[in-house]
Design a protein around this nucleic acid. Structure first.
Lengths: 208, 208
DNA sequence: CAACTTGTTGATCGTTTGATCAATAGTAGA
DNA sequence: TCTACTATTGATCAAACGATCAACAAGTTG
């Protein structure tokens, strides 16, 4: 006779409850991916009736899209801050790659991979994915163009290089979702490829 | 009063029926992804009762895993044959990249992306994904080592380069699932990166 | 203190899914 | 021809999903 005991949820202001639901959704997504986002999984996490979650969201599509956006946006800000203080574009890029490929971000990688797939059935999510990819591209493009301006990098297609970088990072991380064990080597492998794209001599990226 | 009309399926030998079901599953997966593989979607395609599909498969997990394997294996064989006759490793690699990044293989890309995500809930699929990735890696490794032996490429970590190549290809293709429009540029962007990994001078990959 | 507003819930609906099983109807062998 | 075998099916189940809505109750206002 041990049913889930929930008396009655505390009454909160709409803004507060909406924020709580959004936070719960982010937690669920980080733990089990955005494919695990259901009215019931979110409601259970904050010990609330599923209908309440539905009451605060027009539909699941938009909730998934917004949750994806929140997580990915936060990561971009976090990573951006982590790199902002470094002296040179080369150092920023090198540290960025080390950070993104250190194998500790599989939770966010899963979210990206699921988003690419689910985006084909959820247009709101697809639009959000495009927006966030644009933001990441702009971030990388900033580093690349700065490096070109300072003479560290050399390319006639900075935007293309930025897309290429993003593709490499995402692809290697996606592989790690199923292939364990090689996380430590992910970062080191990408070096020469980046040097080739940016006209650097071999090993120049990782130095110092 | 227009119900789906199906009298009774023609009686076939187990081997024949099993092959038919496998083929139907591959068709469904290529059209709508492996997430669309259900007893009912497969049964409907060959105009058969859903229970018959279940009768031929122990469970959905293995059906999905085997269907994934069949599709991906076929593509590797197809692409391998497409490139086998070319004279030099450089030509093989160049043509391979052009082929895989020409934007005409989104169907298979969707299957890969879904497999990385679904592999976390379907161990049989995850194992199959690892196996197929190993095969692709071995294929790329063969080209790289041949190039090194013939003096076209230069690297002290051919296996790492092969993984890197695979990651780049998959990442760029995955992006295209949501970001259309740039398919024509995918192939051209990867060139300098590859040249950097393989110690080639700029532009050497694409020549002739 | 009464009336009103509204945050919250249980109940319920319609779908879709994988799975099981007794019953049916072709097919081959005696 | 009769019998044994088995490929195939309809019916059905439980689980999980998004969604809706009348009803309840905790605040707020007058």
């Amino acid at each position: 006779m041990s049913r889930p005991v929930r008396k009655k949820a505390e009454r909160k202001s709409p803004a507060e409850r909406a924020a709580e639901i959004a936070a719960a959704a982010r937690e669920v997504a980080v733990e089990d991916g955005i494919s695990a986002l259901t009215l019931r999984s979110i409601a259970a996490r904050i010990d609330v009736a599923p209908a309440l979650v539905a009451h605060y969201e027009p539909n699941m599509e938009s909730l998934i899209a917004r949750t994806f956006g929140g997580i990915v946006q936060a990561e971009l800000i976090e990573v951006g801050a982590l790199v902002a203080d470094l002296a040179t574009p080369r150092a920023r890029l090198s540290h960025l790659l080390d950070t993104l490929l250190d194998g500790t971000r599989d939770d966010v990688t899963l979210i990206w991979v699921e988003a690419w797939a689910m985006g084909r059935r959820n247009e709101a999510l697809a639009q959000r994915v495009r927006d966030e990819m644009d933001d990441w591209h702009a971030f990388l493009l900033g580093i690349v163009t700065a490096g070109v301006a300072e003479g560290e990098f050399e390319t006639d297609d900075p935007a293309g290089v930025a897309w290429q970088l993003l593709g490499m990072i995402d692809g290697l991380n996606a592989h790690a979702l199923v292939r364990w064990g090689d996380s430590g080597e992910r970062g080191s492998r990408i070096g020469h490829a980046v040097e080739g794209m940016l006209g650097m001599r071999r090993g120049a990226l990782a130095v110092g």
